[in-house]
């Protein structure tokens, strides 16, 4: 083992009777609900340094002039960690994520300007990165708050029914 393998999700090895498995911080709260999508295992690679040097067909979210979050499919994370410039940290495990629909729902969750996304702010009283694509929103937030956020999201959805 080298480097920071213990931070990443894709370095576990099955065998010798061991079958490592992942569980999402949202899975219990979201059980039985089909209105939101759990994005917790989506690859989230933080880059610090010259973020302009990030190239390729990637989804890059600028956090500050010197920091960016690169979103990718889980299986692409390892290769990306190797080739991205600057200091690279795998934040996949740190951030839970979910996708949901409806401007109204978001208005009940955050005071961020929904026409000025992506942005970092508070969602359900928790620090959060919010991305928008039409009527669809993706939220990324500290996984330790995952259960709390999911509960509030479902409560809001219920209230709007």
């Amino acid at each position: 083992m080298t480097g920071l393998d213990f931070v990443s999700l894709d370095r576990a090895v099955a065998g010798d009777g061991f079958e490592p498995r992942l569980s999402s911080p949202l899975c219990r709260a979201l059980e039985g609900s089909d209105r939101v999508l759990d994005l917790s295992f989506l690859g989230k690679i933080e880059v610090r340094g010259d973020v302009d040097a990030i190239n390729g067909d990637l989804e890059v979210v600028r956090i500050t002039p010197q920091r960016a979050l690169v979103l990718c499919a889980p299986e692409e994370a390892a290769a990306l960690r190797d080739r991205l410039p600057g200091m690279v940290i795998d934040m996949t495990a740190a951030l839970a994520g979910l996708e949901l629909h409806g401007v109204r729902t978001l208005r009940r969750l955050t005071d961020l300007d929904l026409d000025a996304l992506p942005a970092v702010g508070r969602v359900a009283d928790v620090p959060c990165l919010v991305l928008r694509n039409g009527d669809s929103f993706r939220l990324f937030f500290p996984q330790e708050y995952g259960h709390s956020v999911a509960e509030v999201v479902l409560d809001v959805l219920k209230g709007l029914e």
Partner: peptide, 13 residues
């Protein structure tokens, strides 16, 4: 709605 956020560990449940 009056819900306060709580931090839970991955092993909480």
């Amino acid at each position: 709605r009056g819900l306060e956020p709580a931090k839970r560990t991955a092993i909480h449940h």
